[in-house]
């Protein structure tokens, strides 16, 4: 049994609502990429939706569970860019929180304003644990964001993406030869980007195989 299911129940939400949360606590650790910056929520207590988004980002399991118990619909909360709690769990690779969210029926194919799914988010940060989990629970391995970027395209932009590339390319449903809006396959991007490009050979059409219906 996962440890996400074992903590004691208290009214964490009530504590949270009145907690004095120090400034700067909500800044994510990934501010090296201006395009991907998540906004800082200076007042997460303002609504229960903002609270769950904050709690996920801070890896606060018991608070996440408490909030979900209070209002199950918060599993589909969205920030201003359209990121859901599951997106946030996945770009942070908080697998246990992602499991709790999926258990509460989080949409594995929810879209941000730019059309990113949680799988895109996991791949951007080479979070193979979350990528694997999402694929087991219904994530579309071929989902295209704005710009027709699949999770594999996003993976290919990461210099050392061996683990997520492995997870995606070994998935039986992947269409690895898909072109993005620059008419590039993920393999072409990988060749330009970094050290993991030999793995993208898996996506070559010479490796296509379908067993189909049995006799």
């Amino acid at each position: 049994m996962g440890d996400y299911d074992s903590d004691e129940e208290k009214s964490q939400v009530e504590k949270l609502r009145y907690a004095k949360v120090p400034r700067g606590m909500f800044v994510s650790g990934w501010d090296d990429d201006a395009d991907e910056l998540i906004e800082e929520d200076k007042n997460p207590q303002a609504s229960i939706e903002r609270m769950i988004l904050w709690a996920v980002n801070e890896n606060r399991m018991s608070e996440v569970r408490e909030i979900l118990k209070l209002d199950a619909d918060t599993v589909n909360a969205r920030d201003n860019d359209g990121y859901t709690p599951l997106h946030r769990a996945c770009y942070n690779n908080f697998v246990d929180i992602a499991k709790v969210l999926l258990q509460h029926h989080a949409n594995p194919n929810a879209r941000t304003e730019l059309g990113w799914t949680p799988l895109h988010s996991a791949c951007k940060w080479n979070n193979s644990d979350c990528a694997q989990l999402l694929l087991q629970f219904g994530a579309d391995v071929n989902a295209e964001s704005d710009g027709q970027q699949t999770p594999l395209h996003i993976t290919a932009t990461v210099s050392n993406c061996r683990n997520t590339a492995t997870v995606l390319l070994l998935n039986r449903n992947i269409q690895a030869q898909t072109l993005n809006n620059s008419e590039e396959t993920a393999a072409v991007i990988a060749r330009r980007t970094g050290m993991s490009y030999p793995i993208f050979e898996i996506g070559h059409e010479a490796y296509d195989c379908e067993t189909g219906l049995i006799d």
């Binding site: 061996r162 492995t166 793995i199 898996i202 195989c209 067993t211 189909g212």
Partner: peptide
């Protein structure tokens, strides 16, 4: 033979994850 083909494909893909 189709299933044999699938096994060989999966085996080749596994090895490629450790290329070069």
């Amino acid at each position: 033979p189709k299933f044999a083909f699938d096994y060989f494909i999966q085996a080749a893909k596994l090895l490629i994850t450790y290329k070069p």
